[in-house]
Computed example of a mutant assay.
Amino acid sequence: MKSILVAAAVALVVSILFTPYLIRIFSKQGFGQEIREEVQKSHSAKRGTPTMGGMAILVAMWAGYLATHLTVADQAPSASGLLVLGLTTALGIVGFLDDFIKIRKQRNLGLNKTAKLVGQLVASVLFAILAMQFQDEAGITPASEHLSFIRDITVVSFGVVGFVIFAYIAISGWSNAVNFTDGMDGLAGGTAAMVLACYVLISFWQLRYDCTAPTGGGPTPACYTVRDPLDIAVVAAAAMAAGIGFLWWNAAPAQIFMGDTGSLALVGLVAGLSMVTRTELLMVVVGGLFVVEALSVVLQIVVFRSTRRRLFRMAPFHHHFELAGWAETTVIIRFWILAGISALFGLGLFFADWLALSGS
């Protein structure tokens, strides 16, 4: 518990203090956000707001994680924690390059699709391959070749090659989902903070009921076969606190945007945490708002191509409500409520599974 608290406290302080420094630096350099043409009317005032604020989240997250391992004597870095941080940072770098090109060329298009896909492919493949290595004393690797919901679904096995392909598909899918949600001040950041808070609790519970931990009575059907649950909880806590600290400056009216630097970093967190905690399908529920936002875009395209009519005024569908006359802050707060409901429902499913297997 001390490790989790130290990570969260340090990350929160660093994020709150470092973000305004980035705002000043980026403002002087003219690193401002370009706005999509479709939303120029309602969002034109935001043009020029400093972007690439995701750097603050990354720096604060690493600061919280490293501070924990420097100050808590019995807490050593783990393969699982470092792999999630590595995936998050790698995708954040891809996002940074995308943001930087947008700023330099003064347009709303950065890296072309091929370059972005290659960046995601390299990060995904490296993560997946390494996550199948580094067995601990019990022979458990950071990720499993089985598909998982609340724990491994052993009848569904990808194999090592299949898992690498699955990891790339999952990361690409979450990339679209998170990126679509990042369209209003604080919407993606607030949603991610709720998801990460959920995973702090999930990882801590997996630590308490670790199948490999000595309990005197042996493992029970309700235990979890997860490598490094404590370090995963530390990563989730540091990322959550970093996101909350950034949200202080990113909430409407935003003084800085996270940009693709932040949204792609969040993709690494969401996808990485789901794989190392063996909860890939549960993340679809916990991060339900991200999923719904992506589905709204898919439905908009399908309906328009088949009927030449638009299902929503604009997709992703948070813009639908804005164009219907809702104030931006109203949309954000109500979507945060929906995100919170999704996270709580996912957490409820997680604990319901434990109660059922433990016989409580």
Rank of each mutant, 00 (worst) to 15 (best):
V84C: 11
L130K: 06
L12A: 12
R313P: 09
A63D: 03
P142Q: 03
T277P: 08
E37S: 08
S342H: 11
P219K: 14
F345G: 08
T191E: 07
G245K: 00
I103S: 03
N176W: 14
A76D: 04
L344W: 11
A251S: 11
G346L: 05
Y209K: 15
V94S: 03
K46M: 07
I332L: 05
P221C: 13
S124T: 11
R310T: 05
A67V: 11
A242C: 01
L201M: 00
Q133P: 09
A67D: 10
R47Y: 08
L281V: 11
S342D: 15
V84L: 00
K41C: 07
V267E: 03
V285R: 13
A193V: 01
L344I: 05
G119T: 07
D353M: 15
I93G: 01
A294F: 13
V14C: 01
T89H: 14
F96I: 04
G92T: 09
V303K: 10
V267F: 04
G64W: 04
V161L: 11
D210L: 14
F31T: 08
V155K: 08
G218S: 13
K102G: 05
A339D: 14
V122S: 13
I140W: 12
Y168D: 05
P253M: 00
F127I: 04
L109H: 07
Q33A: 01
G30V: 05
V267P: 00
E293P: 15
M194K: 05
I169N: 12
L282S: 12
Q40I: 11
V39G: 03
W174Y: 05
D182P: 06
A252P: 13
V285M: 06
Q135D: 12
L83T: 11
F321K: 08
S203E: 02
I129T: 08
D99A: 06
R104M: 06
I4V: 12
A252E: 12
